[in-house]
Nucleic acid binder design. Structure first.
Length: 929
RNA sequence: GCCCUGGUGGUGGAAUUGGUAGACACGCGGGACUUAAAAUCCCGUGACCAUUGCGGUCGUGCGGGUUCAAGUCCCGCCUGGGGCACCA
């Protein structure tokens, strides 16, 4: 009987579904294991072979953990709010919910075919009101919270109101937009509107004015990467910078904890580095420079207060609020021209032009806080208004950008740290002795930084400060297909929708576009007002509701929690469930989420912990990034100006152009299926093909995409080879974390491996297993495999265990092994990788229950111990031959045995022995000359 | 510019703490079985030299170094990919 993978796989998938084999349970005394995948956005294109890579890896771990006696939670769902469905809706008028539903069905069909052990009863969809109800609920908690920096945790806004009432801002250590100073009397005297304005300065979800890329023609806000050269990517319409009131999240309150938390989680260093860079913590001092002839002061932040005596000029951002005030009449025209020039550049342009130095002198001078020297004040577009204070004290000797600026404008460069050659380049290193620096002279840089800060504080020039690069996250979107923000406005003040009125459902609209006057699509809704007693009502009955929606990352910032208790209608997750599952033990997903999703999720979890909803500080204990699967494009050569194609090996005889051809028409030998090619498109039916023997194409590795005709669909692979082959092959391609090209050609190797495995059990259609006692060799093959597979899964090295399976099956085939005592173990070993064939063999062996919970074998060292070792014998480090010796021999005995060999003597003829290295169990090396 | 990664046969890749480089698989060449094909099995396959046989030289991006021994460790480069970006 042949290995009929189609029947076998269909049968077991039906069995798993009907038996609910993989339903996660919170009972018994088993330990828990939570294996999570980054859930997909269900796009219209469906899955290609790159998508399941990480899912297969996590499924292997999930299945392995079940074999090891864990209660495993391995869920799947859909990140189903998003732009593509909305754009499709704008074009066709079809409601995004319908598009999304269709795409999800397609995804589910494809996922089901691969044999994942997901617990589908726990599926979540972020666009489902039962789910986004809780996203909205979390938003309300954020709205109702402020961050107490002293306690380092979020607290209810009532506590803050009480504090303001009792003490004003005295002793208030709160994360805030700006520093406020209020007495309790002042607070008491304010009306409601003013109080709310003040509270907005502290709320973790708050409204503030922020600059956005506004495209008037599209009536919408665009992301940075949707804007190219000041024009919208779609349509090429002009984009302007516009200030808008937007909902934001005060993630900056959590900067320190987001940084500290990285120390306790098992993520790759490169990923942690990305987050560290994103958060961008820097220690330094905030300094005030007095102005010559003005009452104002310029504040600067510097990480190098030790170099203060080297500050020979200052640079303000062109937009700095003091520029116009301090500029002298002489310089006004020049400054104005420069400001205009800078304003025309986008921030991105300003950041990109590193080589050209530009700036203008204001004519004004600051006074050095220690020496009293007059320091010229310039403006330059390398200083950004949005970072720090928008001003720098320029130390050209020890900062490369300041150095270029000083060189360009002929400003003096004063060395204050010895060790470099400042006539050629700035010396930025934090090493060396201080010079030309008054009371800092002779100190090391590190000491000098400390002493400078002390001096600055003693003289009331400034204070030590920690700066972060991290910004608060803009949370409002001018879109339809997202979670409505549960806020309404009474007298212009934002108020929370009552929890009993959640979910605040997306309203029906007549079109998914912004309104004519630029309001978001929700403003089109007829029934979109709020009455605190009645809920959502028609426009004339209640207060206006917020019309922006939440961004894509809202739902994904907490979905891992919902899987624990996805059917709960009372709370987002019950305390019992969250106590049981705690956190994610293994999270697998793409690298592109390094600073977005993964940072926001960590932020929300910390917040939920502060408010007592979860126990763990970090959501994802261990995280692995799977690499991207690239396409292996194929090219045919078209003769220029003709409908003629020429085989790649003859292409140099013609003048031709490479054109993509569909990789599905090319075989493993890079030969084009000419019939399929002619049938591919109408114009090709009459094309002339020039080739000898076979029509050859050339190959190149590119990103997998429809337009490059290199997309490989898992469905086609499964139809031809089966899901088990696909799973094994995806793993066999190479290390999980590495990006690699997909080349279907190699798949026949793993497929024939599965057939070989099958044939070990069946001879002429009959299951033929003997009850004989296995011999040493057979036991060794088995236990070598057991050891390797256990190690590999624990190291996430799945590619090498596929090789190990092949080696074991090849060896057992050579040994003609048909013994139950050996072959009986193989199905469990391979079950995480190729679950269908494993179930089938398992049941043929006489088992009546699923293999999924069968206990995973452990190797026994006794079967692996070798008595002999084949010693490589090297002369001067070059391996010449090998010789087998018992492992029981000691160094002297090995040396003696090797020297007794005739071949050893041949290599030593006429030479003097200098040294003999013998490492028992490893090598022998003889040094002679 | 900075940070993170990688660079091994025609291809994907393997190689525990430095200890037989190229496991396993694809592809390719040859053979067996077959009327034939498919399937299966066997042999060969890093390059070069030698070939009757034994064998020899080179070889893990490049150049140095440490070591009895380097894909692996150190120093300096080149290069592919990803991320961040005048961050003061």
């Amino acid at each position: 009987m042949e290995y009929a993978f189609n029947e076998i796989e269909k049968k077991w998938r039906a069995y798993w579904a009907s038996q609910k084999t993989f339903a996660a349970k919170e009972e018994g005394d088993k330990p828990k294991f939570y294996a999570l995948d980054m859930f997909p956005y269900p796009s219209g294109a469906g899955l290609h072979v790159g998508h399941p890579l990480g899912y297969i890896a996590s499924d292997i771990v999930a299945r392995y953990k079940r074999h090891q006696g864990f209660n495993v939670l391995h869920p799947m769902g859909y990140d189903s709010f998003g732009l593509p469905a909305e754009q499709y809706a704008i074009q066709t008028g079809q409601h995004p919910a319908i598009t999304t539903e269709e795409n999800i069905s397609r995804y589910r069909e494809q996922l089901d075919q691969i044999g994942f052990s997901f617990d589908w009863d726990r599926e979540v969809r972020t666009s489902n009101p039962d789910f986004y109800r809780w996203t909205q609920w979390i938003f309300l908690q954020l709205f109702d919270s402020w961050y107490d920096e002293e306690k380092a945790q979020a607290r209810p806004i009532e506590d803050l109101i009480w504090h303001l009432h009792k003490y004003g801002t005295e002793d208030l250590h709160a994360a805030a937009g700006e520093d406020l100073s209020l007495s309790p009397e002042e607070w008491e005297g304010f009306d409601e509107a003013t109080r709310e304005q003040i509270l907005q300065n502290y709320r973790l979800a708050y409204r503030s004015e922020s600059t956005v890329n506004w495209c008037p023609a599209l009536g919408t806000v665009l992301a940075n990467d949707e804007v190219k050269d000041g024009l919208s990517e779609r349509g090429g319409h002009p984009v302007v910078q516009k200030k808008m009131m937007q909902w934001s999240m005060r993630i900056t309150a959590y900067a320190e904890r987001l940084l500290a938390g990285l120390e306790e989680i098992d993520w790759t260093e490169s990923l942690k580095d990305s987050q560290r860079n994103w958060i961008g913590r820097s220690e330094g001092a905030l300094l005030s420079f007095a102005l010559d002839g003005h009452a104002d002061k310029i504040q600067v932040f510097s990480t190098r207060p030790d170099t203060i005596f080297g500050a020979t000029f200052m640079v303000l951002a062109p937009e700095h609020y003091l520029v116009n005030e301090i500029t002298t009449a002489d310089q006004a025209a020049e400054i104005k021209a420069y400001q205009e020039q800078a304003a025309r550049k986008s921030e991105r342009d300003r950041l990109t032009e590193v080589k050209t130095v530009s700036g203008a002198f204001t004519g004004a001078y600051a006074l050095h806080p220690f020496s009293g020297a007059k320091i010229p004040i310039w403006i330059g577009d390398y200083v950004l208004a949005s970072y720090g204070t928008g001003a720098v004290m320029a130390v050209p000797a020890h900062d490369s950008r300041d150095w270029s600026f000083a060189k360009h404008f002929n400003i003096p460069i004063v060395e204050v740290v010895s060790g470099g050659n400042i006539t050629e380049a700035s010396y930025d290193a934090k090493e060396g002795k201080m010079v030309n620096s008054d009371f800092l002279n002779g100190l090391d840089v590190k000491e000098a930084i400390g002493k400078a800060i002390t001096a600055v504080e003693d003289n009331a020039i400034g204070e030590s400060q920690i700066n972060f690069r991290l910004r608060d996250a803009v949370f409002g979107r001018q879109r339809y297909w997202g979670e409505p923000i549960p806020i309404y406005f009474k007298d212009g003040l934002p108020r929370r929708v009552k929890e009993e009125h959640l979910p605040l459902n997306l309203p029906a609209v007549d079109a998914f576009l912004p309104t004519e006057d630029g309001e978001p699509p929700l403003a089109r809704a007829q029934k979109w007002s709020y009455h605190p007693d009645k809920g959502v009502v028609s426009a004339d009955e209640g207060y206006p509701l917020e019309t922006t929606t939440m961004p894509g990352w809202a739902g994904s910032s907490w979905y891992d929690l919902r899987y624990m208790d996805s059917q709960n209608n009372d709370v987002l997750v019950s305390p019992e469930r969250v106590n049981y599952w705690c956190d994610v033990d293994l999270y697998i997903g793409g690298n592109e989420h390094a600073t977005g999703h993964l940072l926001y999720t960590r932020f929300w979890h910390k917040f939920l912990k502060d408010r007592g909803l979860v126990q763990e500080e970090e959501p994802f204990k261990k995280l692995i990034n799977q690499g991207m699967i690239l396409g292996y494009s194929a090219f045919a050569y078209r003769v220029d100006g003709e409908n003629t194609f020429v085989s790649a090996d003859l292409a140099d005889q013609y003048s031709c152009t490479k054109v993509h051809v569909d990789v599905n028409m090319v075989n493993a030998s890079d030969e084009l299926d000419v019939e399929a090619f002619k049938a591919w498109r109408d114009d090709l039916a009459t094309a002339k093909l020039i080739f000898e023997g076979a029509f050859k194409v050339t190959r190149e590795v590119e990103k997998m995409s429809k337009s490059k005709f290199n997309v490989v669909n898992p469905d086609d692979i499964i139809a031809q080879y089966g899901a088990d082959t696909l799973r094994l092959y995806e793993m066999f391609l190479g290390p999980l974390e590495q990006s690699k090209p997909w080349n279907t050609a190699g798949i026949s190797g793993v497929h024939s491996f599965l057939r070989k495995l099958w044939r070990l059990y069946f001879k002429e259609g009959e299951l033929t297993l003997s009850e004989e006692v296995p011999n040493e060799k057979e036991l060794k093959v088995l236990h070598t495999l057991i050891k390797k597979v256990n190690e590999d899964i624990n190291n996430f090295s799945f590619n090498t265990s596929v090789s190990a399976f092949m080696i074991a099956v090849n060896s057992l085939g050579e040994l003609k092994c048909t013994k139950r005592a050996i072959l009986g173990h193989l199905p469990i070993l391979i079950s995480p990788y190729a679950p269908h064939i494993a179930e089938e063999l398992w049941s043929r062996l006489g088992n009546t229950d699923s293999i999924a919970y069968a206990s995973f074998p452990q190797h026994e060292e006794q079967y692996l111990t070798e008595s002999n070792h084949n010693y490589p014998v090297s002369f001067n480090g070059k391996m010449r031959f090998t010789h087998e010796l018992p492992l029981s021999l000691n160094k002297e005995e090995i040396e003696k045995a090797i020297f007794a060999l005739e071949r050893t003597q041949q290599y030593l003829e006429g030479k003097t022995i200098r040294k003999v290295i013998v490492v028992p169990g490893k090598i022998v090396n003889i040094v002679a000359s």
